[in-house]
Design a protein around this nucleic acid. Structure first.
Length: 421
RNA sequence: GCGGGCGUCGCCAAGUGGUUAAGGCAGCGGCUUGUGGCGCCGCUAUUCGGGGGUUCGAAUCCCCUCGCUCGCCCCA
């Protein structure tokens, strides 16, 4: 029989990696706590319609990347491909918007049916932040700063923050018409992909990776020239605030982002170390989405960080590995139980304690104790049981003979005192 | 969905048609019947991702298939 395997693009996180994830997650939580954000946890499964309406029928995410199926009641359900739509649904459904502005974060797995490659899995993980009911330039800058500070605190350098303004729906409509009519003079230079995009979502041609398209676009009309005065002023204000906060950024007029709901501010944080999928963090303003999904008109902005990509960047750095402090060497039926009892007591006193499970020869157990990198071996065997004593042996440092201590009557305080010395 | 590269033990690998598929790491056992870090010895792939074919003979050649990986599309 063939061996069972995980699904393509869905990977196991083994202990050595999981430790790194925990550290990243803990740091994120700490940043969010200090920024006064509230956590929101939404289901992994939603009605398909939520994503179809929220993300946009024309996007690839909805068009060809969703994990959808019919449940036993014949309802179309979908594993969430991103976080924003679910959060918006929840915030509407639970009436949070009538309680004033909301500043929220979430963390968890997302699902997209795509070919896996570097920095892309079918089940992947995002950390995201969403602000609702805040429209000022300040809130845009604060939101960006939360992402920036978190990434910096992780020790990541070599990151680039790119920002752009997509303006209002009307701004974009004007620009779109101009761009399309300009492109129509060059249809013979466009490839099949770009021609298709020209009809469906022409702005997306802007971030094409093909060199000849980019060369052509140098002469194309610029989005920035079509922003209304208000939109331009808004964009300038945000730049000023970012400058004041000393958050370095570059303006990328071709940054459009794929999902339908964005307006005004769009931004990305990228790293050159990532290969083709270089975006670590992406986000923007989506003032129309809440209304689109049946809620009150609510200005909103958010970002998401891809954890897999973050972890790739962090793999270069050395993490402080969790290590065992005390290794319990034990032999004999009764002695093993005593060892377990003492291990529990020491764990209650906050020691990291590993207990040898093998019952094999002491020399073997000491070898493992040494390999575990523990500072101490605690020895309980039949002899100790008879003598009512416990031996502690210091494993690190020079062997100078007297590195063993005997504690009478299993005196826990005495043991702890020696272990802490 | 489309292209390129790759699949030999838990990990890293040698082997490119000929009798028993190197080696290293890790693991387990012993030298050392209760004391580690070094050392030495032994054990761990009837089988080379899977299936079919060619051949007297295949991990090695051919076909199909699965998986991994990098890129395109798209996105975090």
């Amino acid at each position: 029989m063939k061996n069972l395997q995980s699904l393509r693009g869905m990977i196991d996180l083994l202990p050595s990696q999981a430790e790194r994830w925990q550290k990243v997650e803990a740091l994120a939580r700490d940043h969010f706590r200090r920024a006064g954000l509230g956590e929101i946890r939404t289901p992994l499964l939603e009605y398909t319609e939520l994503f179809a309406r929220g993300i946009g029928e024309a996007t690839d995410v909805v068009g060809k990347e969703m994990y959808s199926f019919f449940d036993r009641g014949d309802r179309s359900c979908t594993l969430r491909p991103e976080g924003t739509a679910s959060v918006v649904r929840s915030v509407i459904q639970n009436g949070l918007l009538s309680q004033g502005s909301q500043r929220l974060w979430y963390m968890g797995p997302m699902f997209r049916y795509e070919r896996p490659q570097a920095g892309r899995q079918r089940q992947f993980h995002q950390i995201g932040v969403e602000f609702f009911g805040l429209s000022s330039e300040m809130s845009d800058a604060e939101l960006i700063s939360i992402a920036w500070d978190f990434l910096n605190d992780l020790g990541l350098r070599e990151l680039t923050l790119e920002i752009n303004s997509l303006g209002t729906k009307e701004d974009r409509k004007k620009y779109r018409q101009n761009l399309v009519s300009w492109l129509e003079d060059f249809t013979e230079l466009l490839d099949e992909e770009s021609l298709k995009q020209m009809n469906q979502n022409p702005l997306r041609i802007l971030d094409s990776k093909k060199p000849h398209i980019q060369k052509l676009l140098n002469g194309a009309p610029k989005l920035g020239d079509f922003l209304s005065n208000e939109s331009q002023e808004r964009f300038l204000n945000i730049q000023n605030i970012l400058n004041t906060l000393e958050i370095p950024f570059t303006i990328n007029q071709k940054l459009v982002r794929g999902l339908d709901y964005y307006c005004h501010t769009a931004f990305e944080i990228t790293s050159k170390q990532l290969g083709a999928q270089a975006t670590v963090c992406g986000g923007g303003r989506y003032d129309g989405l809440v209304e689109e999904l049946g809620g009150p008109k609510t200005p909103s902005i958010g970002w998401a960080i891809g954890l897999e990509r973050l972890l790739i960047l962090l793999n270069e750095d050395s993490f402080e590995k969790q290590f065992t402090e005390v290794y319990m060497v034990n032999k004999g039926d009764k002695a093993q139980v005593e060892a377990l009892r003492l291990a529990r007591d020491l764990r209650i006193s906050n020691f990291v304690v590993e207990i040898d499970p093998s019952g094999s020869a002491f020399s073997k157990q000491f070898k493992r104790a040494n390999r575990s990198n523990a500072s101490w071996a605690v020895i309980i065997g039949d002899q100790e049981l008879i003598q009512k004593e416990i031996r502690l042996k210091r494993l690190k440092g020079e062997i100078v003979g007297d590195n063993e201590y005997v504690v009478k009557n299993s005196d826990l305080n005495q043991i702890i005192k020696i272990l802490r010395s």
